[in-house]
Amino acid sequence: MSFIIQTINGLSLAALLFLLSAGFTLTFGLMRVVNLAHGALYLIGGYVGLSVVWTTDNFWLGIVAGGFFVVVLAALIDRFLIRPTGENHLAQVLLTVGVAIVIADIALAIWGGDNLRVPTPEMLRGPIFLPGDIIYPRYRFVLILFGLAAAVIMWVLYRRTQIGAIVRAGVDDREMASALGININLLFALVFAVGAFLAGVAGVVGGAFLTLYPGVEWEILILALVVVIVGGLGSLEGAIVGSVIVGLIDAYGRWLMPEMSYFVIFAPMAVLLLVRPTGIFGQEH
């Protein structure tokens, strides 16, 4: 029984992690930019969504607002900070760490240091009764469906559409893609925007059950990092599989050995690194 509940727990975290890591991994695949401010985008998206929910009492509006606020913010960061460094990826990593620190500090000044929970609408509150007499929080169960839908949509967009084919071409070989007349800059902006939107949405959605507090930006980023290290940087399939693996391990770890749960997540990552440094779906770049 608790095994099933823990599995559902793990899957709901996996859904959240997928929202976060999809953008992270595609941004890397396409631009080689490792955006360590991704966790801070999650945080600020969550806070903005929270404020919108507080004032309008509309959860859905909060999600959209959080997503779009982060899109605008990310576009500014991209345009004025990341682009000027060109291809210096080491500098970009450091730069995004600085950005993350600034965003988190500003968020602290505005929203304070307490744990804040994004209020959920009536229809998502309360328990849900699953077959086998399992009672589970409705919100987290719906989140799994939401994550699943997001994964399916992203995967279909990526693998089965024209725009997805262009993105894949860009991931495989940028020079070739631009030689074929694809507007690489527009493509980058698009993927960056989608990734940022998902991060902002994840902040609101995650804030409703993990709560928002200073420091969560790194905790959540680190889980997304493990997801992409396990799945392979730059791979959408890797993000899907990695999210499920990390989500489940985290849930079982918290359940079976709560004090060592952090260790439990990272151990498979370390082993994988020894065997296959580029992750399950990763390729040499």
């Binding site: 990092l225 992409v228 940087l233 990272f266």
Partner: peptide, 16 residues
Amino acid sequence: VYFILVTIALGFIVWG
């Protein structure tokens, strides 16, 4: 960047 990411993750083990 892989090295950076891996060390970040390892560092968080100890913090965790």
